[in-house]
Simulated scan of single mutants.
Amino acid sequence: MRDFVITTDSNCDLLPEYVEKKKVGIIPHYYELNNEVYGDELNLTPKEFYDSMRAGKLPSTMASNPAVIHSTFLGYIQEGKDVLHISFSSALSGGYNNVAAGARELCEEFTDARIIVFDSLNASLGQGLMVMKAVELKEAGKSLDEIEEWLIEHLKNFCVQFTVDDLFHLQRGGRVSKMTAIVGSMINIKPILIINDEGKLIPAGTVRGRKKSLSTIVANMVKQMGEYLNNPGTICVVHGDAAEDAERVVKLIKEEVAGASVIVNVISPSIGAHSGPGAIGICFMGEGKANV
Score class of each variant (00 low, 15 high):
residue 10 S to N: 08
residue 16 P to K: 09
residue 128 G to H: 10
residue 48 E to F: 04
residue 26 I to L: 13
residue 210 R to K: 15
residue 195 I to E: 06
residue 133 K to S: 05
residue 102 G to C: 10
residue 64 S to K: 01
residue 141 G to S: 11
residue 176 V to L: 12
residue 124 S to Y: 01
residue 11 N to R: 12
residue 236 C to F: 01
residue 248 R to G: 04
residue 151 L to I: 12
residue 163 T to C: 10
residue 52 S to H: 05
residue 117 V to I: 12
residue 191 P to Y: 04
residue 61 T to V: 11
residue 24 V to I: 15
residue 142 K to T: 04
residue 114 R to E: 14
residue 147 I to K: 10
residue 198 E to K: 15
residue 9 D to S: 03
residue 292 V to D: 10
residue 270 S to I: 13
residue 4 F to E: 02
residue 34 N to V: 05
residue 107 C to W: 01
residue 81 K to G: 04
residue 44 L to V: 08
residue 267 I to G: 06
residue 82 D to P: 06
residue 232 P to S: 02
residue 139 E to C: 07
residue 209 G to S: 06
residue 102 G to Q: 10
residue 93 S to H: 04
residue 96 Y to V: 08
residue 257 V to W: 06
residue 64 S to D: 13
residue 178 K to Q: 14
residue 210 R to P: 01
residue 24 V to A: 10
residue 250 V to S: 06
residue 66 P to N: 03
residue 146 E to V: 03
residue 219 A to W: 00
residue 231 N to L: 12
residue 16 P to A: 14
residue 156 K to M: 13
residue 92 L to E: 12
residue 110 F to K: 03
residue 207 V to G: 13
residue 158 F to R: 00
residue 67 A to K: 07
residue 161 Q to F: 07
residue 96 Y to E: 06
residue 38 Y to N: 03
residue 238 V to W: 00
residue 97 N to M: 09
residue 210 R to W: 08
residue 243 A to S: 13
residue 122 N to R: 01
residue 288 G to I: 10
residue 195 I to L: 08
residue 65 N to Q: 07
residue 292 V to A: 13
residue 209 G to I: 04
residue 126 G to F: 03
residue 11 N to H: 00
residue 5 V to L: 04
residue 107 C to E: 14
residue 120 S to Y: 14
residue 17 E to A: 11
residue 62 M to W: 02
residue 95 G to N: 11
residue 218 V to G: 04
residue 189 I to L: 15
residue 59 P to I: 11
residue 181 A to G: 11
residue 257 V to Y: 11
residue 258 A to P: 02
residue 80 G to V: 02
residue 103 A to F: 08
residue 204 A to P: 04
residue 85 H to T: 09
residue 186 M to T: 15
residue 64 S to R: 00
residue 170 L to Q: 05
residue 285 M to T: 07
residue 198 E to H: 12
residue 244 E to Q: 09
residue 197 D to Q: 09
residue 214 L to F: 09
residue 55 A to K: 15
residue 35 N to E: 15
residue 207 V to I: 10
residue 86 I to N: 12
residue 25 G to S: 10
residue 65 N to E: 13
residue 136 E to G: 07
residue 261 S to C: 11
residue 245 D to V: 01
residue 57 K to D: 15
residue 6 I to Y: 03
residue 168 F to P: 01
residue 266 V to A: 09
residue 56 G to W: 05
residue 143 S to N: 08
residue 118 F to M: 08
residue 95 G to Q: 12
residue 91 A to S: 15
residue 149 E to S: 11
residue 154 H to F: 11
residue 121 L to F: 14
residue 67 A to E: 14
residue 192 I to S: 02
residue 59 P to K: 05
residue 159 C to H: 07
residue 239 H to W: 00
residue 18 Y to D: 14
residue 241 D to T: 01
residue 236 C to L: 06
residue 151 L to S: 03
residue 174 G to D: 12
